[in-house]
């Protein structure tokens, strides 16, 4: 009977882990998916990236479940999934949809500004996009962004400023209008 109890305890532990994971997915999924969408501008791809993130986290759940900041960890895994996807994508398609220099595609009045923003964002290097999204959409501190992306604080500050300048020049005066 003692052995049965031991087995039951182990099963209970597994059930508890499963429940924890489910709860984590439910709270974290909407946020991760939106962040992923801002990075890739495709809801289905965003869903896939989110799923990849959760799969990787589930594979390590026993180890990471007591990590102090699961949210930060999930952002990190997601961004790495985004970078991987981006690398595969650019390797497969030689020509990237890079906006040509000098013709910054200023949005006219008929273009919705948020669409123009996403387009302008897409023209930035992928890691700069990540900095902008983490800083200005997820409201992460410079330090948090630095740790998520594994770079120094000064790199985040510098590249964030550079990215914002670039966005401003791409969006022009309209940016101030809002």
């Amino acid at each position: 009977m003692a052995a049965a109890r031991w087995g039951a305890a182990r099963r209970r532990e597994q059930t508890a882990q499963q429940a924890e994971f489910t709860a984590f997915v439910e709270t974290a999924a909407p946020r991760l998916r939106r962040t992923a969408y801002l990075m890739c501008r495709d809801w289905h791809l965003a869903q896939d990236l989110t799923q990849t993130t959760f799969a990787k986290m589930y594979a390590n759940w026993g180890r990471i479940r007591h990590t102090a900041n699961l949210e930060a960890y999930s952002r990190r895994v997601l961004m790495n999934a985004v970078f991987d996807q981006n690398k595969r994508h650019s390797a497969a398609e030689v020509v990237l949809a890079e906006l040509p220099e000098g013709s910054p595609q200023r949005p006219d009045d008929t273009t919705e500004l948020h669409i123009a923003l996403l387009q302008a964002l897409a023209a930035l290097p992928i890691r700069d996009q990540a900095i902008v999204v983490l800083r200005h959409w997820e409201d992460q501190s410079v330090e948090a962004v630095a740790s998520t992306l594994d770079v120094s604080v000064s790199v985040v500050k510098m590249q964030n400023a550079r990215a914002l300048t670039r966005l401003r020049s791409l969006l022009g005066q309209d940016f101030v209008r809002i």
Binding site: T22, R34, L38, Q47, A55, Y58, L113, L117
Partner: peptide
């Protein structure tokens, strides 16, 4: 602007996310 950009978020099932993540994980 980001808020507006995600306003068209489609209804994607959350339930599948858990099952798929467990299987893939």
């Amino acid at each position: 602007l980001f808020d507006r950009a995600i306003a068209d978020e489609p209804d994607l099932p959350l339930v599948d996310l858990v099952d798929d993540a467990v299987a893939a994980g």
